[in-house]
Design a protein around this nucleic acid. Structure first.
Lengths: 220, 220
DNA sequence: GCTAAAACATGCGTACGCGCAAAATTGCGT
DNA sequence: ACGCAATTTTGCGCGTACGCATGTTTTAGC
């Protein structure tokens, strides 16, 4: 009675998804992203090509998913894990920067590959825009009842800023008319710079109920 | 005394693009969005199917483009056109709301159709996220030298907020686990509500605006 | 334990997205 | 006016995305 809840069916689904992620990443690393067809990935994962598209709607998604995986929920968790005293903006920015700038895993070479392929870059950057859901939840929880729409908006904006930072960092080219210009800088610095314009909005949205909990409410 | 000389070549390009937009919208309205193939649109516009994809990278884009067209530049123009005294947040919010909530044209039925099709809804909402470029330019110009990255970030966030507002407005369904919940409201109100959390960030980013400062605090 | 319902995997067929290279069109110099 | 260079259009082909129908597995109900 230990591993009950997920149900056998759901576990198989997750296993298949995992297998596809792993296979996609491995093949992409071995043969280069452009030389991998979905049929190859499906075959390596032991499923039919059609099944692949039941899990990922594009070839790049599977490869990138192997790196991003559950980053969204990790960020949300990191936000709620911050001590209650720190300002909301600091909590959010630190959490996002921490989760994005720490490849940690063996994903280093994977990130290198993603950097090299425009299609993968775009998909990778797009994942940053998808952290809205869990983060919004975390915002509501942390502020003790922030306006729901405001939380959604701010979470989505954080994702947008992170996405911009990633794009800037990954670009180094294609800065044509109206494009971004400034690069040069480490990813943590760049991401902080991209997120800092949002700090006033985050702090301004937190005043709903300044309930103080365990320790002192004042910080720094 | 006519307009500039974009060159005959460029005019033909715009004409082709226009023809594709019009044809796509007309066919979609007549036969329903799902019953229109790109070949049909291309044929109606008098070009080859391959040429279609030189102008639009998806079937939905052409249909939606007939409605959105040059909304991005109109918003940017509206921002710069606001008198210099008003706060940046008011200028931006008013401009965005004004441009998004005025279908004006005969696009009313088109919007109705877009509302009905999930694929079109997504593409339509995505256009909101694409107003970043011109708007960032307008922000820099209006504030007289805002940080470039900050301008990009804030412009993109305005687009994100507008996109969220549109999605909420267009949804009325599919609010499953973690999704948005409360809707019910006119689009202008909804969009103002979605944009207001960003007001502090916008005002904080305006460096030197020694003008009137009213105590209006729309943020509770 | 058996049966019905639901969910999933798979094959097939259609349409789409786009890279590539040849053909057509336009811009410009002389 | 002519021809060359740049740009655009077009046909072709490959790989992808997905709806639909079917067989198979899992869950639910009795």
């Amino acid at each position: 009675m230990s591993t009950r809840r997920p149900g056998l069916r759901e576990r198989k689904k997750q296993a298949t998804r995992e297998a596809l992620r792993v296979a996609a990443l491995r093949l992409a690393l071995e043969q280069g992203p452009e030389n991998v067809r979905v049929d190859d990935i499906a075959e390596a994962a032991g499923v039919s090509p059609r099944t692949y598209n039941n899990y990922f709607s594009s070839r790049e998604q599977a490869i990138v998913a192997a790196v991003t995986a559950d980053r969204e929920s990790r960020i949300a968790a990191a936000v709620t894990a911050r001590p209650a005293g720190v300002r909301l903006s600091d909590a959010v920015i630190d959490a996002v920067v921490e989760q994005f700038t720490d490849p940690g895993d063996e994903a280093r070479d994977a990130l290198l590959m993603i950097t090299a392929s425009p299609a993968l870059r775009e998909t990778y950057a797009a994942t940053a825009g998808s952290l809205a859901g869990p983060l919004a939840e975390a915002l509501v929880e942390r502020t003790g009842g922030m306006d729901r729409l405001a939380a959604e908006v701010l979470a989505a904006c954080v994702g947008t800023a992170a996405k911009l930072a990633l794009q800037s960092w990954l670009s180094s080219a294609g800065a044509s008319a109206g494009g971004l210009v400034v690069l040069s800088g480490s990813l943590p610095d760049l991401m902080r710079a991209a997120l800092s314009p949002l700090a006033p909005a985050l702090d301004a949205a937190a005043p709903a109920s300044p309930v103080l909990e365990q320790s002192g409410d004042d910080q720094r």
